[in-house]
């Protein structure tokens, strides 16, 4: 926090013109007191700031993850139903193997998707940067804390939207799929199945089992 030092020095220059040992001590005391005030303020500020956005961040992450995993769950549940139906109706073992294989792939996809979600952060042309810019324009002090909060909230939702937009561009034919098929690294597309791909395989399997693909139309 070099700005503190320069601010303190500046004050010292004004206040303590005649240099004396006593003054030196007083200067140090003054400086350490002021540094303490800054640190105190900082800590309180961090707490207050966190209180404001923790719930907001939670809700945002919850909604996003729930939406994506809900779709994954639907496919998984459908395949489970198919598997249990096969058991109850004594399907042949090759059919059973196919369903099991597809279910394994879906579970792998589910794991990968959860990992992707957890590793994902909203992008950061951060609030700090934004506020620094505002402060550079010497408008910072004119902002009441309420105005700042609003600014931050807007920034959050902007980030969210932007993020979502970017993630969706390289996949889906419809919004339902694109939500589920987002991949942060494109080169992984070839190795990792997509939800749409898994759904296609499921529908194909239904046909092989002599079931109408319309059984899965809701997917």
């Amino acid at each position: 926090m070099s700005w503190v030092q320069s601010a303190v020095n500046q004050m010292n220059d004004e206040v303590f013109d005649e240099d004396a040992d006593e003054m030196g001590i007083a200067q140090k005391e003054w400086k350490s007191t002021m540094e303490k005030r800054v640190k105190e303020g900082y800590r309180e500020g961090v707490e207050a700031g966190k209180q404001l956005t923790l719930q907001q961040g939670f809700n945002q992450g919850y909604g996003e993850a729930a939406k994506i995993m809900f779709s994954c769950g639907q496919l998984k549940g459908s395949l489970s139903a198919l598997l249990s139906w096969c058991y109850n109706n004594q399907c042949d073992s090759s059919a059973l193997n196919k369903v099991t294989d597809l279910l394994n792939k879906t579970e792998k996809y589910e794991e990968d998707t959860i990992k992707d979600l957890s590793g994902r952060h909203p992008q950061q042309p951060s609030f700090a940067d934004l506020l620094d810019t505002v402060e550079d324009m010497e408008l910072g002090h004119a902002l009441s804390s309420e105005e700042q909060c609003n600014g931050i909230r807007e920034q959050v939702s902007e980030n969210g939207a932007q993020f979502c937009g970017q993630s969706c561009t390289n996949s889906g034919t419809n919004s339902f799929q694109s939500k589920c098929c987002r991949r942060p690294e494109e080169h992984k597309d070839s190795e990792r199945p997509t939800l749409a791909g898994l759904k296609e395989q499921t529908v194909a399997l239904m046909e092989q089992l002599g079931l109408s693909p319309s059984t899965f139309e809701y997917l």
Partner: peptide
């Protein structure tokens, strides 16, 4: 100090809350 901390805190709160929410 408070102002600086507040900005950092709002930022950290979104990240922390988000992780748990996910």
């Amino acid at each position: 100090g408070y102002q600086e901390g507040y900005v950092e805190g709002t930022h950290a709160g979104v990240i922390e809350g988000r992780q748990y929410g996910i």
